[in-house]
Amino acid sequence: FTKAKFDAATLDELEDLLIQADLGVDTAQRITQEVGRQRHERGLDAAGVRGVVATEVEKALADVAKPLVVDNAPKPFVILMVGVNGSGKTTTIGKLAQKFRSEGKSVWLAAGDTFRAAAVEQLAVWAGRIGVPIVKKDIGADASGLAFEALEKAKAANADVLMIDTAGRLQNRSELMQELEKIARVIKKLDADAPHAVLLVLDATVGQNALGQVEAFQKTAGVTGLVMTKLDGTARGGILVAVAEKFGLPIHFIGVGEGVVDLEPFDARDFARALVGLD
């Protein structure tokens, strides 16, 4: 942007920036129009413009930036991790387990991905790293049976948190989506309120398909909150803005690497500033 007060071309440039961050055409246009409206009221230079855009993005996200509250009333607090293939479910469980442990909570893991090659081993490595118990069965076992057994064991051990991993699945595969519904239904036999949180893990590189993911997983799995992974790459995850506007689901965490410490609380202001390139 030039030093001078900006014109229509600058607004187009701005819309482009937002589209390139995956906000989608409608959300990008809405924000651009809002910034355009404000240009009359304030004489803004390049940095100023970005600042206003960041503020608009932040506004759209402020209400959904919420920490995950783990209350200890019904022990254990059961978290079900869901999402499409490869989004980062298993890794996020490892990172969260470490976070809960460092808060002094006792944590159990359930290797509920009984489908993918070495998925159980992958979670077992994380359990070993952090030093938490894991309930697992052979590949091909029924995931809801495994989840039931894990909750029984975690209950008996008076654990604070149980995290259940699930196999990745695309949201248009209705038979696989039904499986998630079944897991939730089966563990309710042991605790009518379980799962207490259902976290949908979104990959930051995803485009407009994220809207369909949120819709389908919310409908069949009862998603209560979101985690966005892989924000350490070049993707800026702008679809979250459209997701926030459409669904209003809480966003709890972001993943910023593959290591155990690479998990941060979702912060609307930081996210918005990174999105428009202000750091």
């Binding site: 590189t205 995803v206 407009q208």
Partner: peptide
């Protein structure tokens, strides 16, 4: 590469 990738596809492919 993932077919569900958004705008980042160009960065990834170029890099």
């Amino acid at each position: 590469a993932d077919a569900l990738t958004g705008q980042d596809a160009v960065n990834t492919a170029r890099a």
